[in-house]
Design a protein around this nucleic acid. Structure first.
Length: 450
RNA sequence: GGCUGCGUAGCAAAUCGGUUAUGCAGUGGCCUGCAAAGCCAUCUAGAGCGGUUCGACUCCGCUCGCAGCCUCCA
């Protein structure tokens, strides 16, 4: 029985899909004006793992994750680069897909873009105006009137009266209420625009997600996810928009993942303290990043550090070492470990506990070399998107220079046969200086890893 | 000011009202020419103060500390 923590109720709930056996999942994706950083990688990996586990649990999942390909920052960056905004977003969408593939993130089912959803966005804004939830501001922008929506604040636990409006941001006098937010923004000179009943302009940020999610998944759907920082105002506003437009309950279950931190501080673009996925990939193999992300529960903070990454590498090495030399056969997996793994994942996708179960499998496997345990380890790990590589490939890395290493190892084997321990140890030390670790087998052969 | 969440051993990270989490590192042993890998054993816990309880790291309250949101943010 799968339980998931619902931000809306602040408790773990037994997951019951609207339609038996089917799950509609929408996750707020990236604004594509720069490379993805580790924080974005966390969203991708976490929800990829959620989807993998739901599918493993025999749910028919429709996974939608949008791309925000028009907004102020994109326009700004395109201007900085003297580049067409479409060219800019295309570049970063391609880069994002590359990062995802590297991290073994499976493609989403539907990847709607704001710029190709304009008619849906306009029609939702029209409904909001008709239903009395939106109005034309004095500057020509269309705004959502938050006080018209009686449950405003239900997700974030905020009360309109308690919010310190205007303390750090100037109040826009075009709005009736300072908390009102823009649905349609008039284009300034030289800005990209789309034609609408309210003039040439572009959609506000929040409305695109309401339009795209309901278009792809229906007025009501099962799970909506995203980073913690989107809880307010983004997701709060999505609820207000969608429910005011459709008159139906928008989403049953809200999932929010925790931040990646650096030195106990949120990793973010605005703070400038971020590492892009491709930067980290220069130093660590992609599976290490994925493993690192899954060593922490998705709602907990995840502190990024060199030490955490090398710990992750050590952990993966242990797994791949255990899998080495064991024949992978087609067999039923060990029921006890399978049950423990599922219990962990059923408890709000508790990947740290699931990994602990896999480490227990690895210990047994090391003791017994049982093919059943090997297939158990590999198939359960595949639910987490891990351990699908060949052991030798992982342990040796992809660098070249292997022939030279093999030659030195042969020289050492000869030295060992001659009981020339001094030379044998010298060769081993030389290789160790190049981060090559040797392991002698009882049969006289030697193998190595990086 | 309002609202969230968190505080576990050297590091990372979970579970759980009473029984070994787990990984890395350390220590002792087995194995090895010596190592490495592996196996076995083992040392470091639960911010502080109260309360509930036969018993609390686990539930409740308060204090302190940290992070986040209230502005774009995954």
């Amino acid at each position: 029985m799968l339980k998931i923590y619902n931000t809306l109720t602040r408790s773990k709930e037994v997951f019951i899909p609207r339609v038996a056996g089917k799950v509609g999942l929408y996750v707020c994706g990236m604004t594509v004006y720069d490379y993805c950083h580790v924080g974005h990688a966390r969203v991708m990996v976490v929800f990829d793992t959620v989807v993998r586990y739901l599918r493993y649990s025999n749910y028919d999942v429709t996974y939608v994750r949008n791309i925000t390909d028009i907004d102020d920052k994109i326009i700004h960056r395109a201007n900085e680069n003297s580049e067409d905004f479409n060219a800019l977003t295309e570049r970063f969408i391609e880069a994002m897909h590359e990062d995802e593939r590297a991290l073994s993130v499976l493609p989403v089912d539907i990847e709607p873009r704001a710029t190709t959803s304009i008619p849906d966005i306009i029609s939702m804004i029209e409904k909001l105006i008709t239903n009395g939830f939106a109005y034309l501001g004095t500057n020509g922008d269309v705004f959502y009137a938050v006080e018209k929506f009686k449950n405003y604040g239900q997700l974030s636990g905020k009360n309109l009266d308690d919010l310190q409006v205007g303390e750090r941001v100037d109040v826009d006098l075009a709005k009736r209420n300072p908390m009102d937010f823009v649905l349609w923004k008039m284009a300034k000179i030289n800005e990209p625009f789309w034609v609408s009943p309210w003039g040439n302009g572009r959609p506000g940020w929040h409305i695109e997600c309401s339009a795209m999610s309901t278009c792809c998944l229906g007025n009501s759907f099962d799970i909506h996810g995203g980073g913690m920082d989107l809880q307010f105002p983004h997701h709060e506003n999505e609820i207000a928009q969608s429910e005011a437009a459709t008159g139906e309950k928008f989403v049953n279950l809200w999932m929010h993942n925790g931040f990646v931190r650096i030195n106990e501080e949120k990793m973010s673009k605005s703070l400038g303290n971020f590492f892009t996925v491709r930067e980290v990939l220069k130093q660590y193999r992609p599976e290490i990043i994925r493993f690192f992300i899954l060593t922490s529960h998705y709602r907990s903070p995840l502190n990024y550090s060199e030490e955490s990454l090398s710990d992750a590498e050590a952990g993966l090495t242990r797994f791949y070492t255990a899998l080495r030399d064991v024949e992978i056969v087609d067999a039923d997996i060990d029921l006890e470990f399978k049950t423990r793994f599922e219990q962990a994942m059923n408890d709000d996708f508790n990947t740290p506990v699931a990994l602990a179960v896999l480490f227990d499998v690895a210990r047994e496997l090391n003791k017994t070399k049982s093919p059943v345990l090997a297939i158990t380890l590999r198939s359960l790990a595949s639910v987490l998107g891990l351990l699908q590589d060949d052991s030798e490939t992982f342990l040796k890395g992809t660098n070249d220079g292997d022939a030279e290493i093999e030659a030195q190892i042969q020289a050492r084997i000869d030295a060992k046969k001659a009981k020339n321990w001094l030379l044998a140890d010298q060769i081993r030390d030389e290789l160790k200086a190049k981060n090559i670790i040797l392991e002698d087998s009882p049969d006289g052969s030697t193998r190595w890893r990086r």
